[in-house]
């Protein structure tokens, strides 16, 4: 089976937005955006890492764009951006996000994240197998 190229999604998140989420109230909104596993890998000895969080949020939105799902919010908690054994970011889908990927015919998603100064940018690319005739 051969993988065929699929869709591409991109998103940018200003670090200022993440600073706002961290300091606003009791951080309740942050817990609706990041899973416990993501919050765990976003922590440093100095506290939460705004760059890492901005990158994860950008990646989640970039992945959501692959689904072409209109009329529904981003499945933030069901789209987890974690680290592979090699340190590369990897996507773990569950629940509604996994269902949207299946509906879109997506079998694999690769992402790349970059940060510089005030912004984090993420790109997501999907692929699926070509059925052999």
């Amino acid at each position: 089976m051969t993988l065929r190229p699929g869709r591409i999604g991109i998103d940018v998140v200003p670090l200022s937005r993440v600073h706002g989420l961290i300091v606003d109230g009791d951080g309740a909104a942050l817990h609706r955006l990041l899973s416990a596993a993501e919050l765990s890998v976003s922590r440093t000895p100095d506290g939460l890492d705004p760059s890492g969080i901005a990158g994860r949020l950008a990646a989640k939105e970039a992945v959501f764009k692959l689904f072409h799902a209109a009329g529904q919010p981003v499945p933030w908690l069901a789209t987890e951006i974690l680290k592979s054994a090699g340190g590369w970011p990897e996507v773990r889908l569950s629940g509604r996000a996994a269902r949207l990927a299946e509906l879109a015919g997506i079998e694999r998603i690769d992402i790349s994240i970059t940060h510089d100064e005030a912004y984090a940018i993420a790109v997501a690319v999907s692929a699926a197998h070509i059925a052999e005739l």
Partner: peptide, 10 residues
């Protein structure tokens, strides 16, 4: 936007 939507719900 999608990020502030989460805060709006809250």
């Amino acid at each position: 936007d999608s990020l502030s939507f989460v805060e709006l719900v809250y």
